[in-house]
Design a protein around this nucleic acid. Structure first.
Length: 104
DNA sequence: ACGTTGACGGATT
DNA sequence: TAATCCGCCAACG
C-alpha cells in the first residue's frame, strides 16, 4: 500500500454525518505530519467515491477555496453535519478514529 | 537531483 | 479572535 491508498482507506472510514481533519487523517493513516499531502491526495480522489468533503482543516473550518468550498459545505449539510457559524461543530461531528496498533 | 507548491498545523504575537 | 511565522513533506516540473 502506498501513501495514496493509505489516505483513501482512512477517509472512506469516516462515517456519514461525521468529519475529520487533514492532520488527524494523516495520523490515522500512519503518516503523521503529512497533513498537506492528505489534501493533495484528496484532490485526486474526487472521482473514486471517496467522501473528500468530510475532511476539514484543524478546528473544523473549510479550507477548500472558492466555489468548491461552498460545494463542500452543502454536501456536509446534506449529510446532517451541523455548522456553528463558518465552522463545523467538531464537538458533535468530529469523528474519532480507533487507536492505531503499535508495531509489534 | 533540486527548487517550488500547497484543501496543513500549532505556536506565537 | 485573528494575523504571522515557520516546520513539515509528497508531488511536480
Amino acid at each position: 500500500m502506498g501513501y495514496f491508498e493509505d489516505v483513501q482507506h482512512v477517509v472512506r472510514s469516516i462515517p456519514r454525518g461525521k468529519v475529520s481533519t487533514y492532520g488527524d487523517v494523516a495520523r490515522a493513516a500512519g503518516h503523521p505530519g503529512t497533513a498537506r499531502q492528505v489534501a493533495w491526495a484528496l484532490r485526486d480522489s474526487r472521482l473514486l467515491g471517496v467522501p473528500w468533503q468530510r475532511v476539514l482543516g484543524s478546528g473544523g473550518n473549510i479550507l477548500l477555496p472558492g466555489h468548491a468550498g461552498l460545494e463542500q459545505r452543502t454536501l456536509l449539510e446534506l449529510e446532517g453535519v451541523r455548522f456553528a457559524g463558518a465552522r463545523v461543530d467538531m464537538k458533535r461531528c468530529g469523528h474519532r478514529f480507533p487507536a492505531r496498533r503499535r508495531k509489534r
